[in-house]
């Protein structure tokens, strides 16, 4: 009897609240609709791979299909411009990558992370300093403090800038197009070292052709348990390629919360963890609020590096 009365009472309270405040319960996502994730990079790349794996494991938690659309160009800016214009109803999301912070600072894009709502951070692949097999015994700290060693990077090379900010030593950095050009440059001995993400060079690392010397992160990463962090070696430089989800500005808080919960569940799925580990992507979860804070910190750090 007591239980029933409590139940009825709470029912009344809830319904009056609902009617009085007009706070309808948000029904998201509705059946029959689908969620689109705009990936601003080409299919086959790292961001695309993470998005596809994430979509696969989040679908059951959201109950609707998730489609990936690759809208490439402008280092991500074109895809983000499209996502920013989309209706803020939670049905269009986009993948964030470091350029969402850096391009605005470099004056290459009008949009930055502030033009979106952050949903959650999914992964963060810290930079890994690699050398060729013949330089296996090189002391990485000595190398980083000796300006005669040449780096194969890109312009701007935020990994190297982060290291240089701590060591004060400037290396010659030959700008390449991407990891696909940097790794052969190290293997062929055209440069002495490069900073890559482990997923880009795992095959070579496993074969012993590329030697990982240090990781630019706070803690050692699961893919390379025997490789020290640069912090352990006395140079506290941290920088990674991170990815997360964003939604158009103005997407209701309730919807962001539903998305955050569903994607967080996907992140914790054993299948997702296994797939990410196999592909050598490091999962790093940050909640919506923490992700925003993280990007803000990145912005400050990068502005300092570029002297802006």
């Amino acid at each position: 009897m007591k239980k029933v009365s409590i139940f009825i009472l709470s029912l009344i309270v809830v319904s009056t609240l609902a009617f009085a405040g007009g706070t309808k319960e948000v029904k998201f996502p509705e059946r029959g609709k689908s969620i689109t994730i705009i990936v601003p990079y080409a299919p086959g790349g790292g961001t695309d791979a993470v998005a596809r794996m994430l979509a696969k494991y989040a679908e059951p938690h959201l109950g609707v299909p998730i489609t990936i659309i690759n809208k490439t160009g402008g280092g991500g800016a074109v895809g983000w411009a499209e996502a920013a214009k989309a209706r803020p109803d939670g049905y269009t999301l986009t993948m964030f990558a470091p350029n969402i912070v850096t391009y605005a600072i470099m004056g290459l894009s009008d949009l930055n992370y502030e033009s979106f709502e952050s949903v959650l951070m999914v992964n963060n692949d810290p930079g890994v300093i690699v050398v060729a097999k013949k330089n296996k015994d090189l002391d990485v700290v000595k190398m980083l403090k000796d300006p005669s060693y040449v780096s194969g990077g890109e312009n701007p090379n935020f990994y190297l800038l982060a290291i240089e900010a701590k060591t004060g030593v400037k290396h010659k950095d030959i700008p390449y197009g991407g990891a696909a050009e940097r790794i052969p440059a190290v293997l062929g001995g055209h440069v002495d070292f490069a900073v890559i993400n482990i997923g880009e060079g795992k095959g070579q690392v496993d074969a012993g052709e590329l030697i990982p010397k240090a990781v630019l992160s706070d803690k050692r990463i699961p893919a390379l348990p025997n490789t020290p962090t640069l912090k352990e070696l006395g140079i506290d430089a941290q920088m990674g390629a991170w990815r997360g989800l964003g939604a158009p500005k103005g997407t209701p808080k309730e919807i962001i919360a539903i998305l955050e919960t569903a994607f967080t569940k996907a992140l914790n799925e054993p299948g997702f963890k296994e797939a990410m580990e196999k592909a050598a992507f490091t999962i790093e979860y940050k909640s919506s609020g923490d992700f925003y804070k993280f990007m803000k910190e990145q912005e400050v750090a990068i502005k300092k590096m570029l002297g802006k």
Partner: peptide, 30 residues
């Protein structure tokens, strides 16, 4: 270069590389 260096030679092999990575197969000498 795709299979032995994990370096895609063009946009088509870049997609293949993506496929290998999704499968958790790391191209390379091994």
């Amino acid at each position: 270069p795709l299979l032995s260096l994990a370096v895609p030679g063009d946009s088509n092999t870049a997609v293949l590389l993506g496929g290998l990575i999704i499968k958790g197969l790391q191209p390379g000498p091994l």
